[in-house]
Amino acid sequence: MKDYNKEKIPRATAKRLPLYLRNLTILDTKGMTRIKSKQLSEITQVPSATIRRDFSYLGELGRSGYGYDVSYLIKVFSEILDSEEKSCVAIIGFGNLGKALANNNFRRNKNLTISCVFDIDPEIIGKTITGFHVYSMDDFKQIAHEKNIRVVISTVPSENAQQAIDVVVDSGITAILNFAPDRVEIPKHVSIRYIDLTTELLTLLFFDRHYKNTSSAVPS
């Protein structure tokens, strides 16, 4: 496989690659072998011109008149996103949302694994809940190191998120997915993505109202 210079891929393009990969993987499971940018645009709601430009940063991925080979695109995007490399994930905040995420445990990607969960509630610390031993946030740095954690998912409420994220950053973790909508302060070398469920729901409702005749995935 080609050795891609990932630093030259624009950030906007990089953010869309998981969207492409997710939808292409679904198409592959349905037996679709090739696709054109117009078809992928209808599915992802990303303009076909943008898709072609995104793909151009990665070399010659398709052929004029033929389109793109679905399985080849999956291989390319998987390599770029390192989705073939096993990554251990920790969840901090083991309330209802944390439990739901843990129980899902990335069933579509065997290389993403939730290895441990953390909380500050003394009522659940030390207990095994839905198959997960609940560790104290006081032990985060040690446990994260022992279990080789690379990514943290935070479901901690906004009022406590900064303190929790500080503990995570102090442990050396540089990749965080935060379900609290309020921004937190982090060093420049740390990557963080915010998932605001209210915003996501409003976006979904907007597309449901205004794109009734388009069968598509709502863009992320």
Rank of each mutant, 00 (worst) to 15 (best):
residue 36 K to Q: 13
residue 20 Y to Q: 06
residue 55 F to S: 03
residue 7 E to L: 11
residue 36 K to C: 01
residue 45 Q to Y: 01
residue 109 N to A: 04
residue 49 A to C: 02
residue 79 E to F: 02
residue 88 C to G: 05
residue 26 I to V: 13
residue 23 N to K: 14
residue 37 S to V: 02
residue 17 L to E: 01
residue 69 D to W: 04
residue 89 V to S: 00
residue 42 E to A: 05
residue 84 E to Q: 06
residue 106 F to V: 06
residue 6 K to W: 00
residue 77 F to Q: 04
residue 36 K to R: 14
residue 10 P to I: 08
residue 38 K to Y: 12
residue 53 R to N: 10
residue 53 R to T: 12
residue 87 S to N: 12
residue 105 N to H: 08
residue 94 F to V: 00
residue 88 C to W: 07
residue 67 G to K: 08
residue 95 G to W: 11
residue 46 V to Y: 05
residue 80 I to Y: 09
residue 56 S to C: 03
residue 61 L to E: 07
residue 107 R to F: 12
residue 61 L to I: 12
residue 30 K to M: 14
residue 31 G to V: 05
residue 47 P to V: 08
residue 53 R to V: 04
residue 19 L to S: 07
residue 29 T to E: 14
residue 20 Y to F: 12
residue 15 K to F: 08
residue 7 E to D: 15
residue 72 Y to G: 00
residue 98 G to N: 03
residue 59 G to Q: 04
residue 44 T to S: 13
residue 36 K to M: 15
residue 24 L to P: 10
residue 41 S to P: 06
residue 73 L to D: 00
residue 81 L to G: 09
residue 106 F to E: 00
residue 61 L to K: 02
residue 25 T to N: 10
residue 31 G to Q: 06
residue 108 R to V: 01
residue 47 P to R: 09
residue 75 K to T: 07
residue 12 A to F: 08
residue 78 S to K: 10
residue 107 R to M: 07
residue 104 N to G: 11
residue 56 S to N: 11
residue 79 E to T: 13
residue 68 Y to G: 05
residue 87 S to W: 04
residue 57 Y to S: 09
residue 63 R to E: 15
residue 49 A to I: 09
residue 105 N to G: 05
residue 43 I to F: 04
residue 108 R to S: 12
residue 103 N to I: 08
residue 69 D to Q: 05
residue 46 V to D: 02
residue 51 I to D: 07
residue 7 E to R: 08
residue 86 K to H: 14
residue 74 I to H: 05
residue 37 S to L: 10
residue 66 Y to V: 13
residue 58 L to M: 15
residue 18 P to L: 02
residue 11 R to P: 00
residue 89 V to K: 04
residue 27 L to Y: 07
residue 82 D to T: 01
residue 34 R to H: 14
residue 19 L to Q: 14
residue 88 C to D: 12
residue 91 I to V: 12
residue 8 K to D: 13
residue 11 R to E: 12
residue 11 R to W: 02
residue 17 L to Y: 05
residue 102 A to Y: 03
residue 26 I to Y: 11
residue 22 R to K: 13
residue 94 F to P: 02
residue 6 K to I: 15
residue 23 N to W: 05
residue 59 G to P: 06
residue 72 Y to T: 11
residue 43 I to W: 09
residue 98 G to M: 04
residue 38 K to F: 09
residue 35 I to H: 09
residue 80 I to R: 07
